[in-house]
Design a protein around this nucleic acid. Sequence first.
DNA 1: TTGTAAGCGTTATCAT
DNA 2: ATGATAACGCTTACAA
Lengths: 338, 338
Amino acid sequence: MKSGTVTIYDIAKVSGCSPATVSLALKNDERVAQKTKEKVLKIADELEYRPSYFGRSLITGKSNTIKVVIPDIHNPVFANIVDGIEQYINQTDYHVLLDVTYNSREREQDSFSSLLHKQVDGIIISPIYEKEVTKYIQEKRIDTEKVIYVGIPCSGYDKIHYCTSDSKKGAYMGVKNMIENGCKRIAFLAPTIIKRQGARRKEGYFEALEEFGLVRDKNLVIVCSQNFSEIYQRTSRLVQEYKPDGIFCLYDYATFPVMKAVKDMRLCVPRDLMVTGYDNIDIVEFLDKPLTTVDPHQMEQGYRSAELLIAMLQGNKCAIRNVIEPTLVIRETTRQIQ
Amino acid sequence: MKSGTVTIYDIAKVSGCSPATVSLALKNDERVAQKTKEKVLKIADELEYRPSYFGRSLITGKSNTIKVVIPDIHNPVFANIVDGIEQYINQTDYHVLLDVTYNSREREQDSFSSLLHKQVDGIIISPIYEKEVTKYIQEKRIDTEKVIYVGIPCSGYDKIHYCTSDSKKGAYMGVKNMIENGCKRIAFLAPTIIKRQGARRKEGYFEALEEFGLVRDKNLVIVCSQNFSEIYQRTSRLVQEYKPDGIFCLYDYATFPVMKAVKDMRLCVPRDLMVTGYDNIDIVEFLDKPLTTVDPHQMEQGYRSAELLIAMLQGNKCAIRNVIEPTLVIRETTRQIQ
DNA sequence: TTGTAAGCGTTATCAT
DNA sequence: ATGATAACGCTTACAA
């Protein structure tokens, strides 16, 4: 036996048949006699044969690997998406190559080079710079059957498949719930980090206001950085100057400084002020004041996007738009005091 | 030009030199004339040449890919480790293949097959079933220069490199801090999920008790499942029956039901009871009662483990044991009331 | 049913 | 400084 790797040639030698037959036998091809198959399999097992994926990929042109591109792994939103992807991919014979861009526009584009290198068969990406990425895909004429966006729809190019949840509707539901619980002056707190979905959620916010005949008040729409202390300060000012009776936050994390600011002003949630978040990250259920929030089902988005990509790679046609319905999870921060 | 992929043969044809020269030129080999290099590079660029990693890997036997094996991506502890790994790997020309085992013993072992397949060059693993994995590595005679444990030391086999933080010392610091703030009856709450590190942390707990002349009380050591409601109930019972004045929790997540139980019993943290966690996951800073906790620097562990693995793969000798000092982060749950 | 041989794209060896 | 050729391990026509 050779010192290094065991190849089909080694099996061929021992079994007395040709490499081609061994290859076919290992794939359980019909054309090979049952007896031969058994012999080959037995020898392969004895020699602890492992197929070389490189050799195989070189000739087939497939890597059985997909790339997952996210801006951040720290953020539970993306961790949940990856979780869903892994859950699906684990059931297949594909592998996941992880690429974290740390919000870099350049890295986001670079991530496609492995697709061009044919090092991966497809890409699931949750782009921060969606417009730029979309433009890049168009310019480079990247095969759109190999790409899927997760967590965000694709704008301005109707060839790219995506799987997301309806952000506008989610925000609408969240705001509507506060209105139905008596809120008349609902603020919209939008830290800029997710301009991605922010615009859509704002639409949902406005829609709910309109439906219930509440006036838009510019002063109640706060755009700020995602910095905790900035959110804290902007909230304090907002509450002091414009006295909202509800705050809709663009994502759950932002509610931490918000709640703190409100508490420090000796106001009580939900009595004096209701608060709603977005994402339903798992801890908000166990906070001192369990948070009402919109659940965009990120894990499911991840799972579904993986399912779609694999289906496409296998040549199936899939719907371009895949939208999951968000769910409103009502907890204490919007519970009407009896 | 051929319809499919551009290869070095295409470049050779256009440039007028041989594939061998092209290969060398692209690697910026000394032996190739400057002029030739420039010409080749220019043509490669024009043809948008991308090297085939498969062809390269087939002959070099290296994949420039490492595998990261974690039990769970949902858990911020592992998300932080992966974050650190990504941060380092991003600076290299290696890639990360992610494998989530979902606490399956089988999957943990299977993850090594890709190393045997030579599909990946090395593995960073944070094993749940450390003993079994270690045994597997020994039995299969897996090259220990290609493996590193992160977040947990290797027991019973002194050939496997690991990067972790000193759990015993961390727990010792946490307990000591509570004692110095006046606690006399400190409970140790150990949900079983991390038997991995639990034993070591318990040692640290006992060591601190001894150092300050406090007696061990079996009733103050709670072992239970990681289920939130079970933790809640066990805490309630513990507090009611044995009146501890401090609770050291094995990990931050467990403090959520603990705090809730304490609050529901109308006790006040830290006045009536102090609480300390472990991990320093990012939200605990922004809780209603910011949590005192031990920071094991998971991100750094990830970063360092990646650094070590790559160093080993490049033939460097590395220390087997790599232990990062934990840090105690003191916040309100152990702040002495003046 | 099985064997022969070409080829995937690269690197490595040895000439020139 | 450059070129011809073999080799890596596999799959797949095509031939037997």
